[in-house]
Design a protein around this nucleic acid. Structure first.
Lengths: 202, 202
DNA sequence: TTTCTGACTTTTTTAGTTACAAAGTCAAAA
DNA sequence: TTTTGACTTTGTAACTAAAAAAGTCAGAAA
């Protein structure tokens, strides 16, 4: 059969899995359930993915890729560095709200996934830092900002933003995060972004 | 007997408990062990504290109080706002290194302690934010800084600082945090402080 | 030949159970 | 008033068995 069909089935499986993972979390989703959703047998899933982990990883990668495309697009469309950073916050906010149940973090307990997850997180953070670096550099080229170390500032910015979320939503992973809390995080992030922008205006 | 003796015994118990809690964590410390350290019976501990939780809370309060006295002292001695913030980072750094095993966070699993812990944390954060607000206002009075909302900036600063630690030491609570990691957090916090200072210089 | 499946085995979770350790009590001594 | 040894109660860790989910494979279907 054609490769396209094979790839298409892979995609269908990833989509079905992602749906379940997003609503119930990966550990509360069984392969049988995914198979039922697709009206196929569980064994079929194992024809396309060696194990559940591989499917989980593929789903995470897909979600991440969508996220990054969105990030890049919005950042490029922005007229100023400030606006670009604000767009990034908005995209991140949406992503976090949508995929907070994906068990991006719970995954860390799985010994084999630790390796992958750690690598993937580092990677994602690096990519996002690069994006922010670009925004800062573009802002510097425009005369909007001044900084000697855009890369360093971008990394600091990234960690502070992630940290703000972690600091404000104190809770255990098991508990739900309310919309109000998400909104609160977003507001603080906006303010922190303004601090950075202001600092870089010199 | 005199009240002083009663208070003194209480203090001795708290100190002994704090020592054990600091080295092994509260859950890995038994009341019998604390009693042995003090060469008294376990029942005696229950004469001074209704239960283990109360002792744990007393120990946390003592540690926190020491920390705050140190914070205030160092902040007041500093000549500039920048220097004061740097001193705060140093004190926080030392405190975190020393008491990271105190199970300040693990405590959260205990249903009854949740109430206290949450309240205590909020309280501690509030006090620290107030300290930072003072520093900023003093800096503004001196003409070193400019801001319309010192309180708001101080809260943002506090959360970003806590968050930076959480973001950088990603690990589970069960794992040890290395000295190198602590140092890394400190360095990033210093840089973030400079961003804030710079931003407030207008 | 590639894709798919039912029936199967293996592994992991979960819900009890028990045994031991630690928390907590109390009558009586100092 | 303070302290304690001997006591009861409560919580936890280590087993176990049963159930559920993961994962395999020979062979059917396309």
């Amino acid at each position: 059969m054609l490769t396209e069909n094979r790839d298409e089935m892979r995609e269908r499986i990833i989509d079905a899995a992602l749906k379940r993972f997003t609503y119930y979390g990966a550990s509360k989703t069984t392969m049988s359930e995914i198979a039922e959703d697709l009206h196929c047998s569980k064994a079929s899933l194992y024809y396309y993915f060696p194990d559940k982990q591989a499917l989980h990883i593929a789903a995470l990668e897909k979600a991440g890729e969508t996220y990054f495309l969105d990030l890049r697009e919005k950042a490029n469309a922005a007229a100023t560095a400030r606006q670009a950073l604000m767009e990034l916050i908005a995209v991140r906010h949406e992503f976090a709200r949508r995929f907070c149940r994906l068990e991006l973090f719970k995954v860390l307990k799985d010994r084999q996934l630790v390796r992958f997850a750690h690598e993937a997180f580092e990677n994602a953070r690096e990519r996002e830092i690069k994006l922010i670096t670009d925004i800062i550099e573009k802002g510097a080229a425009r005369g909007e900002l001044v900084t000697a170390e855009p890369e360093k500032v971008a990394a600091l910015y990234m960690h502070a933003m992630i940290g703000l979320r972690l600091s404000l939503v104190n809770k255990d992973i098991s508990e739900e995060i309310s919309d109000a809390e998400f909104e609160r995080v977003r507001e603080w992030q906006v303010q922190l972004a303004d601090i950075f922008i202001n600092s870089l205006k010199k």
